[in-house]
Design a protein around this nucleic acid. Structure first.
Lengths: 250, 250
DNA sequence: GGGGATTTGTCCGTATGTATT
DNA sequence: TAATACATACGGACAAATCCC
C-alpha cells in the first residue's frame, strides 16, 4: 500500500525526477509503520526503477522518472518467458515503422524535416567511429517514429528497440566484419528516404523503407545462421546475471 | 540479488506456474540472509506478479507465471506517466491490426479459419448478453492478431488492449445506450471481414477493417466529447487506488 | 464448530558499512 | 582526520491469518 501511494505520486507528477525523499526514520513516522515494512515498500519501488537508493550522509531515496529502459526490461522479460525469437521482434519493428514512414511522407512538418536532415548529417559525421555509427542508425529509426504523430506506437517501438539492445547479441553481430559493408550502405538508404519523404513521394519512400528493413532482417539472419544460433530467442536476463554472478561470487 | 535469482528461474521455466516456494525460514537458511532481507526480495517479486504470497498454514509463496495482465499494467503506468491520450492508444491498435488483416487475408490456414468462424459464431450466440457481447468483440480483435504469425505484435496488441481495459472508462462508455446500436453493427462487420478473408479479397478486407476501426475510434470520440472528458489520458492508477483507499480507510 | 499447527505480517533493538561534511 | 547522517543487516519476539483434524 505504501509503495502504491508513492508510485501514484510519482506517476501523477507530484514527485518529480530527482526529488529526494525524507530519510527512513521520517518516512516510518509519516506512514505509521515499522522500518522493515517501509523498507519492503522502498525495495518494490527501487526494483521498478521509481526510486534510486544510495546510502551515506545527506542522500537516500531519490525519485527517478520511469524510463523507456526500465519498461523495456519488463517487456523483454515477458517476451523471453514467451519464448519469442529475436527475428520476430525485428519483424514487429518493421510492421510498426512502415505506416510511420507512410504518414511522415504524406504530411511532414518543417520542424520534423529539419530534425530528419540533422539526423542524416549526424550519421555522416560519425561514419568513422563504428560504435557511434550504429547508435546513430538506431536513433534515426526512433526519430521516424517520434515524428509520426502517434506517441503510443513510438513508445512501443522504443520498447522493442530497447529489448533488442538489452538482448544485445544482434547489435554485437553488426560489429562483425561481414556486416560492416551492409551497415555502411544503410546510412545511404537513410539519406535517400529523407529525400523521398521531403518530395512527398509516399509509395517510393514506403517501398524503399520496406526493402531496407527486409535487408536488415536478412543480414541478421545470415549472421545468425551460424551453428548453434538458429532461432535465437530474446534473452534479456543473461546480461543482468553476469553482474549478479559477479557480486554473489558464484 | 535474491529476487533476480528467483526471477531468472521462473522466466527460464525451472520454476513453473503454481509451484510452491519453501517457507521463509527455509529460504533464509538456503540463501544465507536474515528474514527482513529475504522478505524484501519476496516483496519485489510479488510486486512484479512473479509470486503470489498468502499467509496461513500449508501455503506461502506461490509461483505465478507472468501474464499479459501484469505486463499491461506496467506499460499502462508508463503511458500514463507520458500523458498519452486514450485515443492515441486506439490509433496504435489500428496501426497494428491493419497489417495483420492483410497478412491473414493473403494466406490464412484452415485451422485459423476455423477459429475465426467459431469466434463469429460465439459473438452471435451472446448477442443478447451485453457484457459478454463486448468481451467477445474484444476477443475477436485479439484472435486476428494471434493468427497473423507475429507473436511480438500479438503481445503488443494484447498489452495495449489490456491498458484500455485497465483504464476501463472506454469500455464503460460502450455500455451507454447511444453506443449500443453501433456496437451491434460491429458484430456484422466481423462476420463480413471473415468472409472477405476467406475469399482472399485482400484489399477489400483491409479496407473494411480500416473503416471499422475508424468507426470505433469515432464512436469513442463522440461519447467522450461530453464536458470534462476531452482528451482523456490513460489512467490505470485510479482503479488500483480505489482498492488502496479502501484498505487504508482514507 | 472449535482448537492446534503452520505460515506470513509486523515490530523492536542493535550493530555495521558507506558517503558527506 | 573526525564527526555526522544515512542505508544495510541481523536476531528475536509476538500478532494475525489460514488450514487441518
Amino acid at each position: 500500500l505504501i509503495a502504491e501511494r508513492l508510485r501514484s505520486q510519482i506517476i501523477r507528477g507530484e514527485l518529480e525526477d530527482g526529488d529526494l525523499l525524507p530519510n527512513e526514520a521520517t518516512l516510518v513516522e509519516r506512514f505509521g509503520v515499522s522500518r522493515p515494512t517501509l523498507r519492503e515498500a522502498l525495495r518494490i519501488l527501487e526494483s521498478e526503477r521509481f526510486l534510486k537508493i544510495t546510502r551515506g550522509s545527506r542522500v537516500g531515496a531519490q525519485v527517478a522518472t520511469p524510463s523507456e529502459h526500465s519498461a523495456a526490461r519488463y517487456v523483454g522479460r515477458y517476451l523471453q518467458f514467451k519464448r519469442v525469437p529475436v527475428i520476430d521482434v525485428h519483424e514487429a519493428l518493421t510492421a510498426i515503422e512502415i505506416p510511420a514512414v507512410r504518414e511522415l511522407a504524406s504530411n511532414w512538418k518543417p520542424d520534423g524535416m529539419r530534425r530528419l536532415e540533422a539526423a542524416v548529417l549526424a550519421e555522416k559525421n560519425v561514419d568513422a567511429d563504428w560504435t557511434a555509427a550504429i547508435a546513430a542508425g538506431i536513433d534515426f529509426h526512433r526519430l521516424i517514429l517520434e515524428l509520426a504523430e502517434n506517441r503510443t506506437l513510438a513508445i512501443m517501438h522504443a520498447l522493442l528497440d530497447g529489448v533488442i539492445i538489452a538482448s544485445g547479441r544482434d547489435i554485437g553481430r553488426m560489429f562483425q566484419p561481414q556486416a560492416q559493408t551492409s551497415v555502411r550502405r544503410f546510412r545511404v538508404v537513410h539519406e535517400d528516404v529523407v529525400r523521398l519523404i521531403r518530395a512527398h513521394e509516399v509509395e517510393e519512400a514506403v517501398d524503399l523503407w520496406r526493402r531496407h528493413l527486409r535487408a536488415k532482417v536478412r543480414l541478421l539472419e545470415n549472421i545468425q545462421s551460424m551453428p548453434g544460433h538458429d532461432h535465437a530467442l530474446v534473452d534479456v536476463l543473461s546480461r543482468e546475471e553476469i553482474g549478479t554472478a559477479d557480486r554473489l561470487s558464484i
